[in-house]
Design a protein around this nucleic acid. Sequence first.
DNA 1: TTTGATAGTTTCCAAACGGATACTATAGAA
DNA 2: TTCTATAGTATCCGTTTGGAAACTATCAAA
Lengths: 134, 134
Amino acid sequence: MVSKFECRIMTTMAMISNKWKVLIVCQLRPGTMRFNELMRSLQGVSQKVLTSQLRELEDDGLVARKIYAEVPPRVEYSLTPLGQTLVPVLNSLEQWAQEHSDEIIDCHSRAEQKERKKARASAKLAAAQEAAAT
Amino acid sequence: MVSKFECRIMTTMAMISNKWKVLIVCQLRPGTMRFNELMRSLQGVSQKVLTSQLRELEDDGLVARKIYAEVPPRVEYSLTPLGQTLVPVLNSLEQWAQEHSDEIIDCHSRAEQKERKKARASAKLAAAQEAAAT
DNA sequence: TTTGATAGTTTCCAAACGGATACTATAGAA
DNA sequence: TTCTATAGTATCCGTTTGGAAACTATCAAA
C-alpha cells in the first residue's frame, strides 16, 4: 500500500524528476528566458525534448509561457509563483549532496571496485569455459 | 554550462529519482525488511526491477544488504546511516506537495481542460479533412 | 527574390526501461 | 524422492524515451 505521505513525495518527484527539468528551473531562477536562450544555456538538449519538458512544466504550473505576437516569434519562459516555491526544495536536495559528498564519493568508488572485481571474475569464468570447450 | 549547484541537485536526484526507490526508502524507514516482504508491501514491482533498484541503492550507499547463510536464503535490507539522512530530504518533498496541493490540483485540471479542447479541435480538423477528401 | 531568425512540429531510429515468465540453488519437510 | 520456500538470474518482448534531422510559418532585410 502506498500511503498519502509516499504519494505526495511521488507527486513532487513526478514534477521535477528529469535532468532537464531541474536544469530549466535552475536557469529560470534569475528571471525570464527565451526558448533559444534556454537551449543554448542547457547545451545538449534537443529542440524536441526542450519543448516537451517546457510543456510539462507549464502543465504542472511551474513555468509560465508568454507568447509575443511578433515575427520572428518571441516566447518568454519564467517561473510561476508556484515554481518559485520549488527553489527551497531544490536547495535542500543540493545541501544534502554537499553535506554528504564525501560519503557519496566513497560509496561510488567502492561500488566501482566491486564492479571491477565482478568483471574480472566473469572474465576468468568465460576464459575457463573457453578453455574447457576446446 | 552546468554549475556545481545544479550538479549537486542532479547527484541527489539521480540517487532517488525512481518511483520504486522512493517507496523502498520509505518502507525501510521503520527498520529492516526481507526481500519478499518488500516485494509484497510494494505490490506491483517485478522481481527483476526490485532487485535492480535495491542494487543501485546499495551501490549508492543508501541501503545495506545483509545476507544470512541459511536455507532458504534470508536477505535483510535496511537504511544505512547515509540513507537515514535522506529522510528529511524526502520530508521536504512531501511538505512541498502538501503545502501546495490546491495549486497543483488546480493546474492539473486546467491542463486537462486544455488537453480536451485540443483533442476536440484536432478531431474537428480530422473530420473536416475527411469531408474534404470525399 | 532569396535569405535569415525564431519557435516550434514531425518523422525516423536506436537505446533504455519495465513487465512477465521461466529457470536456478539449496536444505529440510513430507 | 518429491515438494516447498527464498532470493534471486536470464530471457523475451513491448513501451517509452531521447536524439538527429528535416520541415513549417512568418515577416523583414538584403
